[in-house]
Design a protein around this nucleic acid. Sequence first.
DNA 1: GTGAAGGGCCAC
DNA 2: AAACGTGGCCCTTCAC
Length: 591
Amino acid sequence: MEIYFQLITDAATLQKACDGLKTEDYLGFDTETTALDPYRGDVRLVQLSNGKDTQVIDLKPFATRGDLRTSEELAPLRELLSADKPIKIAHNAKFDAKWVKHHLGAELGGVFDTLLASQLIAAGDQDRRHSLAEVTSYFLGTELDKSEQVSDWNAPELSQSQIEYAAKDAATMIPLREKMLEKLKADELISVAKLEFGCVMPIAAMELNGFYLDEARWREQLEKVKIVQAKVADELQNLLSAGVAQASLFGVTEINLDSQTQVTDALKNLGVPVPATTRGWQLQPLAADYPVVAKLLEYRGVAKSLSSFGENILEFIEPKTGRIHADFRQIGAPTGRFSCSKPNIQQIPHEQEYRRCFRAPDGRKLITADYSQVELRILAEFSGDENFIKAFQSGEDFHTTAAAQVFNVKPEDVTSEQRSFAKRLNFGVVYGIGSQRFALMTGLKQTAAENIMRRYFATYRGLDAWLREAGQKVLSNRIARTASGRMMRFRFDENDRTQIASARRNGMNMPIQGSSADILKRALRLLHNEIRGTSAKLVNIVHDEIIVEADAGEAERIADKLDKAMCAAGEEYIKKVPVKVDVTIADEWSK
DNA sequence: GTGAAGGGCCAC
DNA sequence: AAACGTGGCCCTTCAC
């Protein structure tokens, strides 16, 4: 393919180019930057292509004439990028959106993201890769040379090869979108694609905003855990070495408490019947009889706190902002859930000692909003189960109401044990729990566990039927879908019972977990529209929870907007039961 | 020394 | 033999 491109370095040419491009429906769009983190570098090039002509805008000369964020010279570019039309086609548009927002002062509007599209089409196939080079090769059959990607984009004069590479990436987007669109249509993924594309800008903004972590508070908390850790480690060491001491000539043997093999050996020496794995839930039943096991579990808890949630997280505080800018993958799981890393602020311990370290800066508030039982409400919606729906409509505590239904008692007569059984099953059915696991977690005998599960499913016949059908459908169709139409493909060996069972559980879980993700993503888009121009900033999301920071004086109004956006998003997918959101305004990240 | 795999545990 | 879904991060172990 012949590439026609023009390098733009002055305002007049830029204006003319933008005028020519703004009537297009679609533009290939890309940027070249001097770093990966927008707080650590500059945008060098912005490339826009209609497929025939590609404009490569060199921002360096513009930067020497003034601040790019406010420069009048760049107004036409800003207008073009922020408009809903033409739609900008980019690979991992979140990346470019962050640079455009931070360095050019414009929100990216109208997005088609070829990375997200590729992930949607792959439908959870873990073997597929989604780099631009791989996606281009897969959909267009052409090879992209990415060797210039890591070249010096700060050089005073860019080489012809660099400019040509930059132009080609943007130009490729036009045919790539056309090919992907065919596939999206064929697989009925248009609607989920729109949902995903609408979520790009909210996430880009959230990553730029960052989440404020009070370093002093975090260190205080750490010191407390360190003291506990030292004490527990010492106690565990003593308990474990009791068995080894006799075998050792020196009498004292240091055991590495973090070593799986050493700890297992020591436990065996003490006569503990060690299970195949020493995971917490396997060891838990032994804790009552063996104090050393209880101590081991206690040690693991504090060790995890210190390793995963220790000083290392402080290294992620960006000096320029004093905040943590984690990396969110929009389609992090095949179900559509986000994943988060560097650091993963979706897995901060729930304890208030940890969460309170994430707080609003002075004069601001944190608004924490989470969907109440959203996965169970989705299950009610999908199954149409009469009793399940009734339990939600009653508006009372769901698990208590469920227990009353299952055990056929008045809600006020439900025992705490009955409520606990119902609660564990309510959560468990979403994952396709079996009686064995239910018995293990409740301490019930296998037959007793089976009896309660039978009662549960006899109460919720519609639920039972839906779950069975979902499990069956995935075996015959080899796909499952969420409410938005998101798709997950399944591969399994028909002769392997464990694989069949696993596919069944996935077939039940994916539509539920994935629809919850759909709802959150829709809420993020609605929220983004609502808080534009206010003091509110999206700072974190945790699967069914949204955390927003806002000026104290505006917090009430923002909380209301957040509540409304989340409910409206939920109601687009859940109609048979009410959608409930719990909203809290506080100085800290609260439960 | 480096990297992958395995085991474990945090979140929802 | 039997394992309840989705992730990321940390540690140890082991191969190179």
